[in-house]
Nucleic acid binder design. Sequence first.
DNA 1: AATCAAATCAACCGCCAGCGA
DNA 2: TTCGCTGGCGGTTGATTTGAT
Length: 272
Amino acid sequence: MGRAPCCSKVGLHKGPWSTKEDAVLINYIQQHGEGHWRSLPKKAGLLRCGKSCRLRWMNYLRPDIKRGNITPDEEDLIIRMHSLLGNRWSLIARMLPGRTDNEIKNYWNSHLSKRVNNKSTGTKPKPSGNNKPARGPKKRNNSIGATSEVAKSRKKQKVKVGMIKVHQPKAVRVSPYSITRNNSSDGGPSGLSSSILGAKGGLSETMNYGAVQSVLDDDDQIYHEDYYCDIIEEGDRSHSSCNLEKIFEEYQQLLKGDDNVQLDSFADSLLI
DNA sequence: AATCAAATCAACCGCCAGCGA
DNA sequence: TTCGCTGGCGGTTGATTTGAT
């Protein structure tokens, strides 16, 4: 028996979201909270797959999404976290409030993977990303299916280059939130919505993400307490009581140093 | 000005773990 | 214990923009 599709795709819109659809989705979530993605499109009157709605909300419409260029600090954190965790974008994204896993993944693939690869091979990195003036926000044509023939023909000629695949062990799912799915009374099963919807959060304030709390230390270093629980539980259940402070201290020290060997061994200790 | 390659990033796809029945 | 549903995740695609020629 094949896997059931996430939703019936017949008659559903695909492709870029229109502003109208965005407005409908935002309006619905503001009223009812996140969650129940499968039934959401029907209830909200959207001709979209639930998954698509979730993705649009998570990656674009959430009020706490931080727009704009990745800062050098964020970039550094991404690189370090990637060296620790590999392609576990959702974990890395949790270290960067306002950034989405998709955004970080894209940024890694388009900027950092090449740069890191060039570093490791000794190739001189091409100027990119923050070395160049940022392209302004791209205006996407929101008309569904607006594919020019020119673009199509270009696509055929396009040869993928420079997409370095990073092979990491398949990410093991972690449970960032100790929640149950029927915990929807305050805004959805993820337990995120009320706090996220209310979050005006910049880095300077404490942001509550349900069970995950992001706080800043004196160095403006962001960390999530629950994140460490995840890693520890995943890597070594004997630590599941979350000796957080000790682990975090150790981690902070490692972050402040540039000793990749140390980082690697630290990563091993977490992941094995 | 036209064309092409490269870069960017929103969106899709399929897999999988967790949960409840 | 099993099974189906659901949400979440990482990989990938493809439309669009930008910069070089």
